[in-house]
Structures are given as structure tokens and as C-alpha cells.
């Protein structure tokens, strides 16, 4: 038995209400350092809402989130980013009118903060910082495998490629934990396969990962642990093999599939 990893993210008793709608109720889960945890559930289950709470885009109605022991309540998104939590978005993931490379330069914002006066005067410190950023941007482009697209406008890329830009943008912040919201939607099978390799590679570099995804084969193959949400409640939690056979989970998905058909 391996010792349990140190705690990275802790979500405690989080509830989110939108008017009368309960998007999340009494949500509790944790993610250990270096783990790949997936958050799954039918459409509207509250997965993106949970991401928004963790990354400071939404204040929970109740409950608390902490990362590496620091309470995140009331912190702004950029302050949470500074603590090492980065995310991608389900829908909007790029700066469409900039090249992929320039996207990353924007993404490297927190690393490139130099005194504005030095930047305007082009002083050596600003120039060398700029050089470092450019090197780093190239590295990131390479990391996610978009070298050939670096000079193209991000808005002209395929959806799959845009998702990769989104991931690279999140990685630009040098996060210790990465939250991915449906990263492979819009990707074909081979792109998805490459992406799984990328996720493992990111984790191997010491980044904890929380993944939201509908692609079940992908989730099953990449996750250490899975948390299942339905109607804002956690209905199951455990390793892929257990979740696969959990009656409540099957019921949640089948039930939803049946109403939709």
C-alpha cells in the first residue's frame, strides 16, 4: 500500500445556488499532490461550476476551498493563479486575433512583469526579461506540440488545436495544479490519444491534475481517481475500476440517456 499523497486541493461542504437552482450542494472532495483526478457527471451536473468556485470565478454560497493549506475564499482569480492553480475553459480558450506564439506571451503575463518604465525605456533588465519570455513561449508551444502552428492566428486553428493552446496558456503560469474542463471535446481519436500522453507528461513533471471530461474511455485510462457528480451532489468516488461498475453511476448516465432519447 502506497502512502497517501499530501493533500493539494480540498473542497469542503461547497454549495452554489443560482437563485432557486442548486448547482452544487454539500460538495466534499480532495485531490492529492501529483494525482490525476477526474470529475465526471451528466450535462448540467455542476462540474464547470465546481471549477469556477475553485479558481475564484464564482463565490460559493456556502463552504470552503483550500489549496495546499491556503484558504481560497474571497481571492480573485489572478491571486489564485499566483498560488499555482491554473485552468482551461470549456468554451473559450484562446486569444483569437493573436498568433499562437503571442497567445503564450500574453499567457506569460505574471512571469513578465517588469517595471513599466524600464520596459518603455528598453532598459537591459526589461530586454532580458522579454528574451526569457520569448524562449519560454517557444518551449510551451513545443511542449503541447504546436510548433508548426506557432505563427498562425489562434482563431484559425482547429478546435482540437485551440484546446492545446488553452492548455499551453494554463501551463504558462507554471502551475502546480492544472484544472482541465473538457479538454478533448472536439478532438478526433488520434488527437485525443496524443492528448492523454500530454496529460501524463504534465503530471510526470509534478503537476496535479483535475479533469472534467465526457469522453469515458479517456477518463478511465488516465485517471487515478474519479469523482462522480449528479444534480450537484457527489454520488460516487473511487478508482476507475470501481466507478465503472458502480450502480449509482450507471443509473445516472443511463437515466439521463433514456430521458434524452
Amino acid at each position: 500500500m502506497m502512502p497517501a499523497p499530501a493533500m493539494a486541493l480540498r473542497v469542503e461542504k461547497v454549495a452554489v445556488h443560482f437563485g432557486g437552482l442548486v448547482a452544487l450542494s454539500d460538495m466534499n472532495f480532495t485531490v492529492g499532490e501529483g494525482e490525476i483526478v477526474s470529475l465526471i457527471g451528466p450535462n448540467g451536473a455542476g462540474k464547470t461550476t465546481a471549477f469556477n468556485v475553485v479558481t475564484g470565478f464564482l463565490d460559493p454560497t456556502r463552504g470552503a476551498v483550500s489549496y495546499r493549506g491556503t484558504a481560497l475564499n474571497g481571492l480573485k482569480p489572478y491571486q489564485i493563479a499566483d498560488l499555482g492553480l491554473a485552468r482551461t475553459f470549456q468554451r473559450t480558450s484562446v486569444f483569437p486575433n493573436d498568433t499562437v506564439y503571442d497567445n503564450l506571451l500574453v499567457g506569460l503575463h505574471r512571469q513578465g512583469r517588469v517595471n513599466l518604465l524600464e520596459a518603455i525605456l528598453g532598459l537591459p533588465r526589461a530586454r532580458s526579461s522579454e528574451r526569457r519570455l520569448r524562449e519560454r513561449a517557444s518551449e510551451l508551444v513545443e511542449w503541447v506540440g504546436l510548433e508548426r502552428r506557432a505563427r498562425d492566428l489562434a482563431g484559425s486553428l482547429s478546435y482540437g488545436e485551440q484546446r492545446l493552446v488553452g492548455v499551453a496558456l494554463a501551463l504558462a503560469a507554471e502551475p502546480s495544479m492544472l484544472l482541465l474542463d473538457e479538454p478533448v471535446s472536439g478532438m478526433n481519436a488520434s488527437e485525443t490519444h496524443t492528448f492523454v500522453e500530454l496529460v501524463r507528461n504534465i503530471r510526470d513533471r509534478g503537476v496535479t491534475i483535475l479533469l472534467v471530461e465526457h469522453d469515458m474511455p479517456m477518463v478511465m485510462s488516465v485517471s487515478d481517481r474519479i469523482v462522480v457528480l449528479n444534480y450537484g451532489r457527489i454520488i460516487a468516488e473511487g478508482p476507475p475500476d470501481v466507478i465503472r461498475n458502480d450502480p449509482a453511476v450507471i443509473e445516472a448516465y443511463l437515466g439521463q440517456g433514456a430521458t434524452r432519447a
Binding site: V94, V106, R110
Partner: peptide, 28 residues
């Protein structure tokens, strides 16, 4: 010109193009 080509200029551009994303990469 220097301003818009600096990190500060990129922050402005980022905000204009996709504010949610800009905020998430740490632009205040």
C-alpha cells in the same frame, strides 16, 4: 508604441480579446 509592445500592452490586448481567459492567466 513601447507601451503596447510591452507586457503591459499584451495585458491590454488580452483583456480586449478574451477577458475571462485574460483574468485566468493572471491579468488584473
Amino acid at each position: 508604441s513601447r507601451l503596447v509592445h510591452s507586457h503591459f500592452g499584451r495585458a491590454m490586448r488580452g483583456l480586449m480579446e478574451n477577458e475571462t481567459l485574460a483574468v485566468s492567466v493572471g491579468i488584473d
